[in-house]
């Protein structure tokens, strides 16, 4: 995956036209950048997301969108009870979501705890499927920076292509923005070629103003992706949160020329929801983001529903859930 550079000709931005990624050397600089961001009116943002949910995706657009959504899935298992066998089966499914139909694209990645990375790496050899590891004391982020970095190194050593780190929500909510930023920078600095996804855990940030500021903080810190949630707290991805994060990614790109991806995770189970997210992507950040390089779904059961919808489109009748392997 490589980020493409957006033409910035003529674009005027809050942070200075074509300014590039602003340097953040002090917490004061970071604060002033975040303070310059526009507020979010929650009522208006909810209304916008709700209206986009009424888009009607039919025919060829639906076909293309279902395949696109499949190719954007980070097939995820993050359970204490995960086994090597389960990971093997997940990897097989990631490569070839439905063995009967080779025209179905592989998913984007599998997403696992770091100790399972080596096994997954082996199972995915020769495929395009990436291995993503949750690290930095996932899901709470409550550990020292040294432990978090060790966690990341461990996953990288085992062969992870992507690191899904969590931010320190306690620090963010208590105003220690510099600390949160420094952790993102520190993790990014050891990631090398591996892509860094920064999980904001928006369910704990609560307000959309916080979501916008945390998005910018992560992008300024070097995130390749900003991600909504761990899936481990009560509120995960919502269309409104995705809308605000995509606005942030769009504005950041116009300001700096760097395209940062967005990953929605947690609670997305139905194809209908996935298509609604794609509509929000299309009409907020634009079709440039409609690629697995820049938009992902962190999900497990969503994949089977996408497969079922796809088959239903072809057959014209509903499909039994048992036609596809469980995970």
């Amino acid at each position: 995956m490589s980020t493409t550079t957006l033409p910035t000709t003529g674009a005027q931005v809050r942070l200075g036209p074509g300014a590039g990624v602003p340097t953040v050397e002090t917490e004061g600089q970071l604060r002033s950048i975040l303070a310059s961001l526009s507020g979010v009116d929650a009522v208006g943002a909810e209304a916008r997301a709700a209206r986009l949910a009424t888009r009607s995706i039919k025919r060829a657009t639906k076909w293309a969108a279902l395949d696109l959504a499949i190719s954007m899935v980070d097939l995820t298992t993050l359970e204490g009870a995960d086994t090597l066998g389960r990971v093997s089966s997940l990897c097989a499914k990631a490569r070839r979501p439905d063995p009967r139909d080779p025209s179905i694209p592989s998913v984007a990645a599998v997403c696992l705890y770091p100790d399972l990375v080596a096994h997954a790496r082996e199972r995915l050899e020769g495929s395009t499927v990436k291995v993503a590891a949750v690290a930095t004391a996932f899901p709470s982020g409550r550990a020292s920076l040294a432990v978090k970095l060790a966690d990341v190194r461990d996953a990288l050593d085992a062969g992870a292509d992507e690191i899904d780190m969590v931010i320190d929500r306690g620090a963010f909510l208590s105003g220690r923005l510099g600390q949160v930023f420094d952790e993102v920078v520190a993790v990014k600095s050891i990631c090398g070629d591996a892509h860094l996804k920064v999980i904001l855990e928006t369910g704990e940030l609560v307000t959309l103003d916080n979501v916008r500021r945390a998005s910018w903080l992560a992008m300024l810190g070097g995130a390749d992706f900003i991600k909504t949630s761990t899936g481990k707290v009560g509120v995960s991805a919502t269309p409104t949160v995705a809308l605000v994060m995509l606005e942030a990614a769009r504005d950041f790109a116009e300001s700096t020329g760097r395209l940062v991806g967005v990953k929605v995770a947690g609670g997305i189970r139905r194809s209908k929801d996935a298509l609604r997210y794609l509509v929000i992507v299309n009409e907020t950040a634009g079709s440039a983001w409609l690629t697995p390089d820049l938009f992902r779904f962190g999900a497990s059961s969503l994949l089977n529903d996408l497969l079922a919808q796809r088959l239903m489109q072809r057959r014209g009748v509903y499909v039994r859930p048992d036609e596809f392997s469980g995970d």
Binding site: R55, N282, W289, L290
Partner: peptide, 8 residues
């Protein structure tokens, strides 16, 4: 910006 939008 030249982001483009997918038609439906």
């Amino acid at each position: 910006s030249e982001l483009g939008w997918l038609a439906y």
